[in-house]
Design a protein around this nucleic acid. Structure first.
Length: 128
RNA sequence: CCCACAACCCGAGCUAUCGCUCCCCGUUUCGGCGGGGGGAGGAAAGUCCGGACAGCGCAGAGCAACCCACCGGUUAAGCGCCGGCCUCUCAACGCAGCAAUGCGGGCGGAGAGAGAAAGUGCCACAGAAAAUAACUACUUCUCCCCACAGUAGUGUGGGGAGAAGAAAAGGUGAAAAUGUGAGGUAAAAGCUCACAGUAAAGGCUGGUAACAGCCGUUACGGGUAAACCUUGGGUGCUGUAAUGCCAUGUAUAGGACCGCCUGAGGGCUGCUCGCCCGAGGUCCAGGGUAGGCAGCAUGAUCCUGGCAGUAAUGCCCGGGCCAGAUAAAUGAUAGUUUAGAAACAGAAUCCGGCUUACGAGGUUGUGUUUUUU
């Protein structure tokens, strides 16, 4: 049974962690989503914390930004299983941030496709 | 009946699957799990006004800056709202007229509603001239020329030049020196008079007041203050990333400069004066923290009803508790119904307003056009 929840514990919080992520993390881009991530070794079982964001420069209205963030969260929530399992197997603490860099409002099916691609690549990076 | 506009109401429902956040109850091996419940707006928006709340300041004076500008009420407060006054504009309608139109009228609309008689500036185009007005035409005087009359001084008429008078005529303009009539004069002119108009201060009457009406007096000097300005009244600054507290952690290490009463530096809103505090201060390099609680949601609160008031609004009885996150929840997908792929749009300390954006429909009101009877 796949875990599809996305509760507070799985969210990447705190400005400090985000600052570190943008400053030192690695990144790749699968348009229209840019992914930042860091992986650190853990003694215990691994974990994943993820966050999403949109630039207010590209979307002036708060309603549009909310919509994009909700879609990103939804896509991540429904497709994250492989990634969490990989992280647990490798004993790594993974921090990920999905930044939407497109300039148009996304459609749900297209965004799901991109998200799956991004998650697959993340999983590959972990397993390497 | 259709269309447009204004005000008020509403701002989607259902089903399935997968999710988020807060509260309560139960349970727990303290990781969770189960059940129940709450979960964006009329504008949450713009941040344009006004407050609450908080911190800092609270010897004083001057200047600067900013805001307000008919009256009364309302309110916690207001540049809001309600009612009234004034000015401008104006529908129906009435009167006159063949008509164009004029006069009255006043539903409704607008007003950045103190002062243009303190001063400075500006007033496109047109026009002579846009403010202590002389272009044409007019009048008087002086000089010159011509014609006529006369012996002559001179007189009459015409033309030219100069000086002066004069805003009555012309035509321009959004606006032209208050209008009409009479007197007056060389020609004229509020120069004088009558009537009318406007303004100022005064008196009486009505009104809480703005103001209105009447009386006599004086003046008549265009507009613009959304140009500077003047007058009157008012204003501490910063905003919840405010602010108070708890916890965690490092380095009591290093370097440079200034100063310790002959005083560095700081505070007193933007400036100046003046006053006060004052033994540490500034910078570089390096190290650490960046977690939690309060603020924070029972309030100028919402709903029903009653009473007072023209109304805005206030008071009273009863009932309700209605988001509280912190990278930031309230959703995603599919189907379906209304009505067609619901429009504008997402709380971040909280209220009262204003402004702007917007959807289908309902109710009420107003207006235009056409057709039919």
């Amino acid at each position: 049974m796949a875990d599809r929840s996305y509760s507070k514990k799985e969210k990447l919080k705190s400005r400090k962690r985000l600052g570190e992520l943008f400053a030192t993390g690695r990144s790749f881009s699968i348009f229209p989503v840019k992914v930042f991530f860091t992986a650190t070794e853990m003694q215990e079982k691994g974990s994943v914390q993820a966050g999403v964001g949109v630039s207010a420069r590209n979307f002036k209205k708060a309603v549009d930004r909310n919509r994009i963030k909700r879609l990103l969260r939804e896509c991540y929530r429904l497709n994250k299983t492989a990634l969490t399992e990989a992280a647990a197997a490798k004993h790594k603490a993974l921090g990920v941030f999905f930044l939407y860099v497109g300039k148009d409002l996304p459609e749900y099916p297209a965004l799901t496709e991109k998200m799956i691609a991004a998650l697959n690549r993340l999983t590959d990076e972990l397993n390497r």
